[in-house]
Design a protein around this nucleic acid. Sequence first.
DNA 1: TCCTCATAACTTTTT
DNA 2: GTTATGAGGA
Length: 747
Amino acid sequence: MTPGLEVLQGLNPPQREAVETIQGPLLIIAGPGSGKTRVITHRIAYLVRVCGVSPYRIAAVTFTNKAAREMRDRLQRLVGGSSNSLTVGTFHAFCALMLRRDGAPIGLDPHYSIYDSDDQLALIKRSMELADLDPKRHHPRSVQSVISKAKSVLMDSGALAQQRENYFEEVCARVYHHYEELLSRNNAVDFDDLLMKAVQLLQESQDVRERYQQRYQYLMVDEFQDTNVAQYRLARLLTGEDRNICVVGDPDQSIYSWRNADIRNILSFQQDYPQAKTITLEQNYRSTGTILEAAKSLITANGMRLHKDLFTENEPGVPITVHEAYDEQEEAEFVISQISQLVRENGHKPGDCAIMYRVNAQSRALEEACLHQGMQYRLVGGIRFYHRREVKDLMAYLHLLHNPQDEVNLTRVVNVPPRGIGAKSMQELVRWSQRENISLYTAMGRIAQARQQGEQCPAPLPSRAASSIANFCDIVQRLVQQSTQLPVVELIDQVLEDSGLRHHIQSGDDQPEERWENILELRETAREFNAEQPPDGLATLLERLSLVADVDSYEDSENSITLITLHQAKGLEFPVVFIVGMEEGLLPHSRSMDSETELEEERRLCYVGFTRAERRLYLLRAFRRGFMGSSGPTMASRFLREVPEHLIAAASRKVPAPAVRIPAVSTSYGASGASGWPSNKTPPAPPAAPRISLQTGDLVRHSTFGEGVVMECTPSSDDHEVTVQFSEVVGVKKLLLSFAPLEKLEG
DNA sequence: TCCTCATAACTTTTT
DNA sequence: GTTATGAGGA
């Protein structure tokens, strides 16, 4: 056999065709569990080992760091050491590096800071002040989203001003203009800029463009359905004459349109490259027949879709379990006890099991249940590590040292820990620096210098404030000097000491141990790639840390179950999957329910959840769910109804219509068993009052109207309106559940 | 200037 | 149930 040809072994015909198609544009539509990553990595291995292409000339861009890392690991195994010279990374990381190395033609200083969305928001608020806008009238967040959206389609403020469609966009364009100026004055770029400026660079500098095009002869784009216009444009710009671009995606798993991902890129691709070959991967290797069929039924409810015919040769497996709990506590307790049972009786490990939910807030009840039942768990995401205050503070110091023009980060740390430079002093200082037309950092430098030379403070500041500022400035200047010489870990230690941050955190009364742990974790991360020493160590560290999400620190552990949002679960797989909160308003989310396209995205999200499961799938809902403090009744998710009845375990019950359970006046049926409640016996302690649950079709008895059938049960403010068909004489009555003397009949 | 307390406002998903 | 903001007092 020709050396290297074993990379073709074990591939099915379409997979093999995808691997062997190396010339020209290629679109791979890859259903869930169809071996997508396998195809990408084997295709790269094929290029390197069979076709003799230098790894240096191959780039693979992904959407998340996690995907990039996984790809890198697999390639390492397939092509060995030379995989190091492959370019594998996220769009953002790729752009950040390109801009740092080659950003000069578009006037970018390589020491630029990268602002995350929080920094972005802070700067937008400042821009709104400059534009004389009342933040109460226009929500900074909405402005942020308009600006970000504009950037994602490569519109600058001028373009937005021209193409505005309403008054609000006009306002945003004004803010955007100030925002652009502030960014450039701070020598900073936001996430969107990384893409937009990279495109700008490639468009405007022929030299840079040609260099990159020559270098990258083969480009692969993973999760293509999640790319936005800027990312697609970037991919096209990187693809030179050879047009060896291969994009892989699944429109049915597009769940990031809110982040301006544009499924239409797939259509554009076919238009832009009419000669492109399309290969569809339809065989699923992951899930049981039952799970796949449920997922297929669900997704066919969506309108516009690219046709796909998924199939599997796997066993049908066990039916899907649908469980209806009373509230989220019971839901959580059920899930955890179910997992314990699977571990005891079915030979599963806790690590096989994942619980997925729509919003992070849902993890709380699950965590409590884990604690309660002594189950180890790993929470993915949540309050993100890099968003924690102490972590952001330390990061802000590091950013400041690397880029002293960065006023967002300067402002953030100037009084952390408190050193007597309050809002008032800063306001004065800003005003003075503007009059003098110098940056904040320079202004501070002047004050410090005057002080050293025993001169009077040049700025109109109280002497106390002036000396605090001079002090702070001395510290920062000293650290800036050290930043180019010390390895990053030592620099971090120095910062922690000199700034007083360590003392501040450790002596604070807000969970000092935990916060210090977080600092140490950051320090540990820095130590891990300490191999990259100064002078570039700090830049690399900042770049990486600015672009990582927490999924990256995700590690398998066979003793812990996984708690994860549906979004983050994309790309993962688990033998056992629980999806909780299958309720209208949660999944689909209430903010997506009034638009058909958004609703379809919710359905795709649900589909992503279903297709993560290999062997067992559990769908859960609660009749009542806590909602910002108070709790209220819920309606079953329409997605539950889209799962064919015959795939669901007989023991579990499926709700065809809204059902509620609230305290009732009638007590005649006593214990909870009588209400037809699922058999698990864990009603949480407090609810002493008997409860009644009604759903369409239930038989009830009313003290005056007699027996009837429930037609409908809808929640109204604090109560429930029940429509009941009584005898022909009585007719249909609408009743309020809390007042009506209703009693549920079994049968 | 800084800290405490109260109030409001808000929660989708993330590079 | 949370976190961001504001007023008022030390």
